[in-house]
Simulated assay, not measured.
Amino acid sequence: MYGVAKDIMMMCLASLRCYVDTMNAYRDTMFGLDIPSPNREQLGDMEVRIEKGKYDFGLATDGDSDRMALIDEAGKFVDYNDVLKLLYYYLKEYREESGGIVRNLATTHILDKMAEYYGEEAYEVPVGFKNISQKMQEHDLLLGGESSGGLKIRGHVNGKDGILASLLAVEMMARTGKKIGEILAEIDQKFGYLYFSYSNFNYDPSQRKRLEDLLFEEEYQPDLSQLVAEDLISDKKLEKVSYLDGVKYYYVDQSWISIRFSGTEPLLRIYMEMKNEAEVKEILNFLKADLKI
């Protein structure tokens, strides 16, 4: 994405005898007049190219190379949560390394199930990569990450490193001899599947206090009973509520909803993991109406 990783990535991949085609691998201080972020919206051209060509997978790093993205063998963008699952699974299952994980509260809970399976600890921290780095140092954890694409691996730089994550993905493919889709299928079979969703909702700044009072003073809890009664979603028994960063609702069936304000824009961010996409859509529509956003 016209970023600083272009030279070192080519050197590393060439030394590993990888056959590589490049895209946007030249200096452009305007980043092709686009956002240099490895999101699905910015990587559509790579998805199409992989879908039409004969490639094992695609790699992308952002402008400063602290984040990375994967495109699988079918030309499908790999969700950042799935990248974290892939790399932790590879480090534990194939490299047999020790250590737990830390994630922010807006990242998949499947990582917790994986850590439990391997007899390791899993920690949840507020949004902000400094919190992940601090927890990793405190407990000598193997991997830390967030659903926005940043991750850190023990023993390397004390921060996000998209170059290392990309090269670890290359190693994973070479050592396992499996495609990304095959490894993800293994993970889903072993640890289950949850559908992750992330949505931003604009609000008028004059509504900020109303929303804050509703969420934190009145301790709002979404009443999903009508959706359950209409058989639109599975039963949602509330297990606990956390105010660690915004408000987060944890349900007994391992699904969850996180609602927090953006620190930079008049946006209300809603994250959730549910059994499937249909549940996510029903609950999002309910929250939009109930919160009046």
Rank of each mutant, 00 (worst) to 15 (best):
K178W: 00
R208A: 12
F286W: 15
A174H: 14
Y203D: 03
D245T: 08
Q226Y: 08
Y203W: 01
Y193N: 00
R210A: 11
A278D: 13
E182P: 05
I180T: 13
I270M: 05
L184R: 06
K178S: 09
E217R: 09
D290R: 09
T176C: 06
L284T: 08
V170W: 05
I257D: 01
E282C: 13
I183K: 05
Y251K: 03
K275F: 06
D223F: 07
R260C: 05
A174M: 15
L244N: 07
R175I: 14
V228A: 12
D213K: 15
F201V: 06
S206V: 14
K178R: 14
L232Y: 10
R175D: 15
K281S: 12
G246S: 13
E265Q: 14
E186W: 02
K288G: 04
Q226F: 11
V280P: 00
F201D: 03
D188C: 02
A278L: 10
L232P: 01
S206L: 12
A229E: 15
G181H: 08
S255W: 04
S258L: 15
L238M: 11
R269L: 03
A278M: 11
L184E: 06
E282N: 15
G181A: 09
P222A: 03
M272Y: 04
P205D: 08
D290P: 04
M272H: 03
E273F: 03
D235R: 14
L214H: 07
E219G: 01
S197T: 15
L184Q: 11
K209I: 12
I270P: 00
E171W: 05
K248V: 05
V280Y: 00
K288M: 08
M173S: 12
G246N: 10
E277D: 07
Y203H: 03
A278I: 08
I233L: 11
K190A: 11
L287S: 03
F261D: 00
D213M: 12
I257E: 00
